[in-house]
């Protein structure tokens, strides 16, 4: 166990956390502002990845692909909002769960029909394909660094948008008390649509960005969706700041746990059993983290004041 391994894994954890943040940001806003449980948010991530894969293959350039995938993901999100979601805002949470569960089932199958069941892969763009030496004996892929960088940039932009612009003010007000915002003369359904479309695009962006480093396959959003819910619950529903901190926390705990869990277990077990048990038990860490956070702070780390 060396320092460089620790650093690499910390970077991996950060990168995973940033990925979670992209998805969690939209989910927490949709949830906080509209009180809408959208299980289909994970498939929007998957759709983003597929769109990026398709457009990259068509144009032969990842950046053109990304540029085309983003508006397409936005349009797709708005289409879903228009067709289905806006009829569900006034329903109770269970109806929303059932309907969005139906959408997951449909879309996971639909991508199989459209793009085939086999995983697609997207080549890492040439310009970002190398590795850099971070310190002696520590190489790290440029693409992953770019992912972390773009994540931090987007987090900053979001922060400015939410904290200092008029639309951000409305979003924050909506998360605190949506009926009151509506009563003050704001077109709440348009606000909902903006928030929804933006969330869908962010999830799509996350999918597009990981397309070169993960395989693009049906159902890729399902497990991530659950982790994203963990993130927004730990962070406090409706809080972007909470989502950011919780996302990094979950990303780091999960990644480092998978690496160091088996290592620690080796102190009390024989090595082969330790590595197997450790690998299996490590994913439990973040759920233990969530249960502990909720035990001490039942409304998350940064509860939005209602």
């Amino acid at each position: 166990m060396t320092l460089s391994l620790f650093l690499v894994q910390t970077l991996n954890g950060l990168q995973f956390g940033i990925l979670l943040f992209f998805i969690a940001a939209g989910l927490t806003l949709v949830f906080g502002v509209m009180d809408f449980i959208n299980l289909a948010h994970g498939v929007q991530y998957m759709i983003g990845a597929y769109l990026a894969a398709m457009f990259t293959a068509l144009t032969g350039n990842f950046f053109f692909g990304l540029m085309l995938a983003l508006p397409s993901a936005l349009l797709f999100g708005l289409l879903l909002e228009f067709l289905i979601f806006r009829h569900l805002y006034a329903r109770d949470h269970l109806d929303q769960v059932l309907a969005t569960f139906g959408i997951i089932i449909f879309l996971n199958q639909a991508v199989k029909v459209v793009w085939g069941a086999a995983p697609l892969s997207v080549p890492v763009p040439e310009i970002l394909s190398g590795t850099v030496v971070l310190m002696d004996g520590l190489l790290y892929p440029v693409y992953r660094l770019a992912l972390i960088g773009s994540g931090l940039a987007i987090a900053l932009i979001l922060y400015i948008l939410v904290s200092y612009t008029r639309i951000g003010m409305l979003v924050r007000a909506g998360a605190t008390n949506a009926p009151m915002v509506s009563a003050l003369g704001v077109d709440i359904s348009r606000l909902f649509m903006v928030v929804f479309g933006f969330g869908a695009m962010l999830a799509g962006f996350a999918g597009a960005m990981v397309a070169p480093i993960l395989s693009v396959e049906p159902g890729m959003g399902d497990n991530l969706l659950i982790l994203t819910f963990v993130v927004i619950v730990i962070g406090g529903i409706g809080s972007i700041r909470g989502a950011f901190i919780a996302a990094l926390l979950v990303g780091l705990v999960d990644t480092l746990g998978r690496i160091f869990g088996p290592f620690l277990l080796r102190l009390i077990m024989d090595p082969s059993a330790a590595s197997q048990t450790g690998r299996a038990l490590a994913p439990m860490l973040i759920y233990i983290l969530m249960a502990a956070v909720l035990f001490f702070r039942p409304a998350g780390l940064f509860p939005v004041r209602k």
Binding site: I84, H87, L88, R91, D95, L98, A99, F101, G102, I103, I104, I105, F106, L107, N108, Q109, A110, V113
Partner: peptide, 14 residues
């Protein structure tokens, strides 16, 4: 079949 089953759930809710 999931292409039918998914929309069926949505329709039941709506």
């Amino acid at each position: 079949w999931k292409l039918i089953f998914g929309p069926f759930l949505v329709l039941v809710v709506l």
